[in-house]
């Protein structure tokens, strides 16, 4: 029993969990009234899902040995196109439910198509993921700006706002969506054939190909999944902000890489855990919201995020180095 406990706490996820608890306690002690307030806990629960889902999406691509720099623009372009469809159909028909349905379906479809585009360029044409998604991010941003002309899309039916702002049995809807995504991702990576293939492709695509894995097809599908996850995050964001704009969530791009890496995903591919990324996302989330409560300038929060990312990698390097020299 004791050794089992020890094993749990010496695993990467265990360490992350301890860090999370420590920071949580620290924040609570420093600001028991604000940090532990019902309001703050609620807002944490509403904020975490969009970031968490984007982080999982990023982790998935990093596991294949790539990176998705177009992640946040995938989310915003799909919310803009879907949002436009939603608000215009609402305006012309006045039917809220139908418009919301149309909007959400289009958001998901667009995100799938954008993921498909990345997948096509990366897997079938063979462009390195960094460049392909770099180009895609500029492209998606450009298309978004062309649609919004720099403004925001709004005029959504009130019903749409429920997705991001209401709760069922006291559990925020975004959180429910997030839990579904978490379970899906866990099954995908830990239990499914595709997950096993993704891991091996991330380690050594040639061996995978020589073992009869359809590497291109799997990569292609992975980018589609990544795109759809971004789309889901986009839906939550659009609903929470009651509008759609190309710059929403742009700070999540770096943070999602940070959460993946912090969560133990190997930046060169082949390793990654849903639980690790979840815990890392939670850590980053409470840090930023905690600092916000203490009145720290939001720009300084960015500084801290960058610092944490580098610090974690530096610690990884030093512990590896010490282990090797032992």
């Amino acid at each position: 029993m004791q050794s089992k406990l020890k094993k749990v706490f010496s695993s990467k996820e265990g360490v992350l969990f301890v860090i999370f608890v420590l920071i949580f306690i620290l924040m609570s002690i420093l600001s028991p009234h604000k940090f532990l307030s019902n309001y703050n806990i609620q807002s944490l629960a509403y904020q975490l899902p969009e970031f968490g889902i984007l982080s999982l999406s990023m982790m998935l691509i990093i596991m294949t040995g790539g990176i998705n720099l177009s992640l946040t623009f995938t989310a915003t372009l799909s919310m803009i196109v879907g949002g436009l469809a939603m608000s215009s159909s609402f305006e012309s028909t006045g039917m809220a439910f139908l418009s919301v349905l149309i909007g959400v379906v289009i958001m998901l479809l667009v995100s799938a198509v954008l993921g498909m585009f990345n997948g096509l360029v990366v897997s079938y044409i063979g462009v390195t993921p960094m460049l392909a998604t770099l180009g895609a991010s500029t492209l998606f941003e450009g298309i978004s700006l062309n649609i919004t002309k720099g403004g925001a899309i709004s005029g959504f039916p009130f019903m749409f706002l429920n997705i991001g702002n209401s709760a069922i049995l006291g559990i925020p809807v975004p959180m429910i969506i997030f839990i579904v995504v978490l379970v899906y991702m866990w099954i995908l990576l830990e239990k499914s054939r595709m997950g096993a293939a993704i891991v091996m492709i991330g380690c050594n695509p040639k061996v995978a190909e020589y073992s009869g894995i359809r590497v291109k097809k799997i990569l292609f599908q992975t980018y589609i999944i990544s795109g759809i996850l971004a789309g889901i995050a986009g839906i939550i964001m659009a609903s929470r902000y009651n509008s759609a704009k190309e710059s929403y969530g742009s700070s999540y791009l770096l943070q999602s890489v940070a959460a993946s890496v912090l969560g133990g995903t190997n930046i060169s591919g082949g390793e990654g855990k849903v639980l690790g990324t979840l815990l890392a996302a939670m850590i980053l989330q409470i840090i930023s919201s905690g600092l916000n409560i203490f009145g720290l300038n939001r720009y300084l929060t960015n500084v801290l995020m960058g610092f944490i990312l580098i610090l974690v990698l530096a610690i990884n390097f030093i512990t590896d180095y010490l282990k090797k020299n032992k």
Binding site: Y299, G306, L309
Partner: peptide, 20 residues
């Protein structure tokens, strides 16, 4: 020195520098 992959290292410094 710390063997941090360039994209991650510079993403980190980007965030820090821009934040400051």
């Amino acid at each position: 020195m710390l063997k941090i992959p360039p994209i991650v290292a510079t993403l980190g410094t980007m965030s820090m520098i821009l934040g400051i």
